[in-house]
Computed example of a mutant assay.
Amino acid sequence: MSRQLNMDTLRQNFWKEEYLREKMLRCEWYRKYGSLVKARQKAKAAARLPLKLPTLHPQAPLLPPPAPKEAPSKSPSSIQEAPFQSEMCPVPPATRALLYEGISHDSQGRYCYLNTRKLDLPEKRYLFPITTNFTYGWQLGPPVKQELVSCKMCRIDSFFRKNGAFALLDPRDLAL
């Protein structure tokens, strides 16, 4: 903002009064809300401090309860429970082994693992669509390559106008 050279006494008094009014408003606000702001700042600072947990002493192992005489024919295995606990399918061992080979900086390790995992279809990685965006690509199958028509006049590259939004309509822009 440039400095105004046409300052007279009336304008000087106006700016002086505005400055004092602003200063008084700030002082009133500080008197009214200053203690609340300080209390909130202290609460936030206390929340940022690391929480000290009590140390747990090792306890003597408890004896397992006696097994009932009638044991069920099938015992639930952890492999069957895993799909219910996770949204993703288990990773094949060959793909998981990529995690431990090399470092990401050399395009190995995690970098190679993620790129390999990215190539899998979503149906192979997830048990069900997690978000609504998954439904757009869920179970589409391999991409189908479309054949291009040899006639350039028949092919429409885009639905946007080639002459800009506010230009007059061009007959080449219309798909009839």
Rank of each mutant, 00 (worst) to 15 (best):
residue 82 A to H: 13
residue 81 E to L: 15
residue 20 L to F: 14
residue 117 R to K: 13
residue 109 G to Y: 04
residue 117 R to S: 05
residue 114 L to D: 01
residue 76 P to S: 04
residue 113 Y to Q: 13
residue 84 F to L: 10
residue 120 D to F: 14
residue 94 A to D: 14
residue 102 G to Q: 06
residue 18 E to F: 00
residue 34 G to E: 04
residue 74 K to Y: 15
residue 101 E to L: 09
residue 20 L to H: 09
residue 97 A to Y: 09
residue 43 A to Q: 07
residue 49 L to G: 04
residue 52 K to P: 04
residue 93 P to F: 09
residue 19 Y to D: 07
residue 86 S to P: 01
residue 33 Y to V: 08
residue 109 G to Q: 08
residue 50 P to Y: 04
residue 89 C to L: 09
residue 26 R to F: 10
residue 41 Q to S: 03
residue 39 A to N: 02
residue 30 Y to C: 07
residue 68 P to S: 10
residue 92 P to E: 11
residue 49 L to R: 15
residue 38 K to W: 04
residue 100 Y to H: 12
residue 97 A to K: 14
residue 53 L to W: 11
residue 89 C to H: 01
residue 82 A to C: 04
residue 18 E to N: 01
residue 42 K to D: 11
residue 71 A to D: 02
residue 83 P to M: 09
residue 28 E to D: 10
residue 19 Y to V: 09
residue 32 K to R: 11
residue 85 Q to V: 04
residue 44 K to S: 01
residue 69 K to E: 01
residue 94 A to R: 07
residue 66 P to I: 04
residue 86 S to T: 13
residue 71 A to L: 12
residue 56 L to E: 08
residue 83 P to Y: 10
residue 40 R to A: 12
residue 107 S to W: 09
residue 61 P to E: 03
residue 84 F to Q: 08
residue 64 P to L: 14
residue 62 L to T: 01
residue 102 G to S: 05
residue 104 S to T: 07
residue 103 I to L: 03
residue 118 K to H: 03
residue 79 I to E: 11
residue 48 R to Y: 11
residue 40 R to C: 13
residue 34 G to Y: 06
residue 97 A to L: 07
residue 116 T to G: 02
residue 116 T to R: 11
residue 83 P to D: 12
residue 89 C to M: 01
residue 88 M to C: 12
residue 75 S to A: 10
residue 107 S to V: 05
residue 40 R to K: 10
residue 98 L to Q: 11
residue 58 P to G: 03
residue 110 R to Y: 12
residue 104 S to C: 13
residue 52 K to S: 12
residue 25 L to Y: 08
residue 97 A to S: 14
residue 85 Q to F: 02
residue 86 S to A: 04
residue 74 K to T: 07
residue 28 E to V: 15
residue 19 Y to W: 00
residue 33 Y to A: 03
residue 26 R to V: 03
residue 102 G to H: 09
residue 99 L to W: 06
residue 68 P to G: 07
residue 115 N to Y: 03
residue 23 K to E: 08
residue 83 P to C: 00
residue 85 Q to C: 07
residue 76 P to T: 07
residue 22 E to N: 09
residue 38 K to H: 10
residue 119 L to H: 02
residue 49 L to V: 11
residue 26 R to Q: 07
residue 37 V to Q: 13
residue 38 K to R: 15
residue 54 P to A: 14
residue 107 S to A: 13
residue 65 P to F: 04
residue 42 K to L: 15
residue 34 G to R: 03
residue 28 E to T: 05
